[in-house]
């Protein structure tokens, strides 16, 4: 398991990662006016991290502006897909092996960010009732006018959205196979089946399985956001690690441990959420997950730095401690292989 933080291209951020003992980074590039990520930019990013001793293994995410017409099934989607394919080919050349993308047409959803956490830490919350009452306030991409134009007047059924993602996969996956890049779909967070009349198709384990089965390929799989899966109503997250991990479909994962599930959940510190995190890490080990797992958003801490160094240092320490403990416990329990 390769623990990583999301890291921007600054000396301070890479140093922070190195000091925490990390060897991998997850990062992204800004949307490019050309509509695809250019090879030079990818190489520059890769080399910047490599000089600091960090391996840039995951792009999170494919910029939405590069494929929003595909998501919504709008005219111009063919051209956007050409560009997405160029991005994938460039990643292959640059040796960046995983591209995460998401299919949240209306983005991520939260309804509150208040000091209700442990010691007054700021916790983000999703409450479906509140989101129904004030839907616009629940959209976290509302600052992006390009996307807002599609919002309330364009209901999309689940089958329409499946058609759109199927087109995406049919175009992207063959190119990904050729380029040696895995494309990893992030589930819909918050995982509710639809919002403002627009379906959220990756909001259940069945949806994730259908995505995998829609285009069977070693390059088509999941960005397994633990926190999102854990907040799917009635779902045992650890079971899903076994389910998708055994299929080899977890290409990348997010480490997070919320309290509650749809219709209402809070993003608390990882040691106080509902999931047994020891069991989760054990599951990743048992399915042989060897990809990158990124420490995800956590509560906002008192006097923290802009990049959340306090809260992320705590999370990295916690996650590393779980991984280290299980490694050492398993090594101690392994039968002694002495003698001949």
């Amino acid at each position: 398991m390769k623990i990583a933080l999301y890291v921007g291209m600054t000396e301070e951020e890479v140093q922070f990662s190195r000091q925490l003992g990390l060897r991998y980074v997850v990062s992204s590039l800004p949307p490019n006016p050309k509509g695809y990520l250019e090879l030079d930019d990818l190489l520059r990013a890769r080399d910047f991290f490599a000089r600091a001793g960090l391996s840039f293994d995951v792009i999170e995410n494919l910029p939405v502006l590069h494929y929003h017409k595909v998501m919504f099934g709008l005219p111009g989607r063919e051209e956007q897909m050409d560009n997405v394919c160029t991005t994938i080919r460039n990643m292959g050349i640059a040796g960046i092996p995983v591209l995460q993308y998401q299919w949240m047409l209306l983005g991520g959803l939260r309804t509150e960010y208040s000091p209700t956490g442990r010691g007054g830490a700021r916790v983000s919350r999703f409450d479906w009732e509140v989101a129904k009452r004030s839907p616009l306030a629940a959209l976290d991409w509302r600052r992006s006018p390009d996307l807002l134009i599609h919002a309330p007047d364009r209901p999309l059924s689940s089958e329409q959205v499946w058609e759109n993602i199927t087109y995406f996969l049919q175009r992207a996956v063959p190119v990904a196979e050729e380029a040696g890049v895995k494309i990893a779909a992030h589930p819909d967070d918050a995982p509710i089946p639809s919002f403002m009349g627009v379906a959220r198709i990756l909001s259940s384990p069945e949806g994730l399985q259908r995505l995998i089965d829609t285009y069977p390929s070693p390059c088509n799989g999941l960005g397994f956001c633990q926190g999102t899966v854990a907040t799917m109503a009635g779902v045992d997250m650890v079971e899903q690690i076994y389910r998708f991990g055994r299929q080899g479909k977890i290409f990348f994962a997010h480490f997070r441990n919320p309290q509650g599930a749809v219709p209402k959940f809070d993003e608390v510190f990882p040691d106080e959420g509902d999931t047994d995190m020891v069991a989760a890490v054990r599951a990743y080990r048992e399915v042989g997950f060897d990809g990158v797992i990124r420490v995800d958003h956590a509560p906002g801490m008192v006097d923290d730095w802009p990049h959340g160094n306090r809260t992320f240092a705590f999370q990295v320490g916690y996650f590393k401690g779980l991984v280290d403990a299980l490694e050492m416990m398993d090594a101690a329990a392994a039968p002694a292989r002495g003698g001949n």
Binding site: D271, A313, G317, Y318, G321, D324
Partner: peptide, 17 residues
């Protein structure tokens, strides 16, 4: 603060595990 946050997280995890 950063160093202590890391250490406390690490210790909490070892004890939980």
């Amino acid at each position: 603060h950063k160093g202590y946050a890391f250490s406390i997280g690490y210790l909490r995890a070892l004890l939980q595990a």
